[in-house]
Amino acid sequence: MTTDDDTGSAREHTPGSLLVTFFGAHGRDLGGWIAVGDLIRLLAAVGVDAQAVRSAVSRLKRRGFLVPEPLGGVAGYALSESASELLADGDRRIYASRASRLADGWVLALFSVPESERQKRHLLRSRLARLGYGTAAPGVWVAPAHLFEETRHVLTRLKLAEYTDLFRAEHLAFEPTREAVARWWDLPALARCHEEFLEVHEPVLTRWNRRRGAVSLPEAFADHLRAVDSWRRLPYLDPGLPMELLPAGWPGQRAARVFQELDARLRDASRDFVRETIGNG
């Protein structure tokens, strides 16, 4: 569930990013609508003040992510249709297993856009990059084969399919595939992203695993929201490259395991906090 504001490292939690993450994790469970006052109370648990929430809501409204929709005289917002589709796409990437094998091969994306439609060329490039594609050569984009269906779905939804050809491929020559992958993707930068996630969130998991007794719902909500907010960028930056091609000690699998365990540990308590807060609003 990435948006145009989703850049930066795992350490950054802007009000807009946290709000998008909240709607992805909880908004649809609420029927896609929530009162502004409830949003303010909920995001206060992660240290976001009321004015910052209102400003973030306004930005998301301008971008078409949220639609103003008063209900019973109460100011509130609903997810737009495009936002709901974006979040559904994100679910498949964020929570799915991304293991791939070299034997599975690759998907190649080649596109041709008329000069009169340069904006669509830029959109195509940006979307392929956001899906985790690397650049094998000018105009030739490559990704693990398991991204084929997601790529086809996204390009069809964005009405970009007519400009694009997708191929299943096998790398045969002339450069060793491990060296080629290191050229197609910035592996040191990807590793740093995983390491930053681990540095911030692995101690949080350790702390929760040592807990005994009643769970603090506001704390569970805050830790869970921050973890999802940090993690949801990484599966788009790192497309799940085959382990055979990655440097020794690659931190991606460990980061994925920490996220999955944190999500399993805190998800229900986080949802309980949301229901409790809205019920007392």
Results as ranks from 00 to 15, higher is better:
residue 231 W to N: 11
residue 251 P to F: 02
residue 216 S to V: 03
residue 68 P to W: 02
residue 201 H to M: 06
residue 74 V to E: 12
residue 82 S to G: 05
residue 5 D to Y: 08
residue 51 Q to E: 12
residue 271 R to A: 10
residue 249 G to M: 10
residue 110 L to N: 04
residue 90 G to I: 02
residue 188 P to C: 10
residue 137 A to K: 08
residue 263 D to Q: 11
residue 143 A to L: 06
residue 260 Q to G: 15
residue 52 A to P: 09
residue 264 A to L: 07
residue 270 S to N: 08
residue 22 F to S: 14
residue 220 A to L: 10
residue 6 D to N: 09
residue 272 D to C: 12
residue 267 R to I: 03
residue 52 A to R: 13
residue 170 E to T: 03
residue 149 E to A: 14
residue 63 R to C: 05
residue 185 W to F: 00
residue 91 D to N: 10
residue 146 H to L: 13
residue 54 R to F: 00
residue 14 T to A: 10
residue 22 F to Q: 05
residue 184 W to G: 05
residue 269 A to G: 06
residue 151 T to P: 09
residue 176 P to I: 05
residue 31 G to P: 11
residue 52 A to Y: 04
residue 281 G to Q: 05
residue 23 F to A: 11
residue 139 G to Q: 03
residue 192 R to G: 08
residue 242 P to D: 11
residue 224 H to K: 08
residue 193 C to G: 13
residue 102 L to Y: 01
residue 207 R to E: 14
residue 116 S to A: 15
residue 202 E to M: 06
residue 265 R to Y: 04
residue 67 V to L: 12
residue 9 S to Q: 06
residue 55 S to F: 04
residue 239 P to R: 04
residue 152 R to K: 13
residue 158 L to E: 13
residue 266 L to N: 09
residue 53 V to A: 14
residue 102 L to H: 02
residue 21 T to V: 07
residue 162 E to K: 09
residue 118 R to Q: 12
residue 175 E to Q: 08
residue 127 R to K: 07
residue 268 D to W: 04
residue 223 D to M: 05
residue 148 F to N: 02
residue 277 T to F: 03
residue 179 E to K: 07
residue 258 V to G: 09
residue 254 R to L: 12
residue 143 A to Q: 01
residue 91 D to L: 06
residue 99 A to L: 11
residue 3 T to R: 00
residue 195 E to I: 05
residue 88 A to Q: 10
residue 205 L to A: 04
residue 226 R to G: 05
residue 169 A to G: 00
residue 43 L to F: 04
residue 25 A to I: 06
residue 276 E to K: 15
residue 13 H to S: 00
residue 151 T to M: 11
residue 127 R to M: 02
residue 251 P to N: 06
residue 100 S to G: 09
residue 265 R to N: 07
residue 242 P to W: 01
residue 227 A to I: 11
residue 72 G to T: 03
residue 154 V to L: 08
residue 137 A to S: 13
residue 16 G to M: 01
residue 14 T to G: 06
residue 38 D to T: 03
residue 50 A to R: 12
residue 60 L to I: 04
residue 29 D to Y: 10
residue 162 E to V: 07
residue 160 L to Y: 03
residue 73 G to M: 08
residue 36 V to H: 02
residue 91 D to W: 02
residue 281 G to E: 13
residue 132 G to W: 02
residue 214 A to Q: 12
residue 36 V to P: 00
residue 63 R to K: 15
residue 109 A to T: 02
residue 193 C to S: 14
residue 148 F to Q: 12
residue 73 G to D: 09
residue 192 R to A: 14
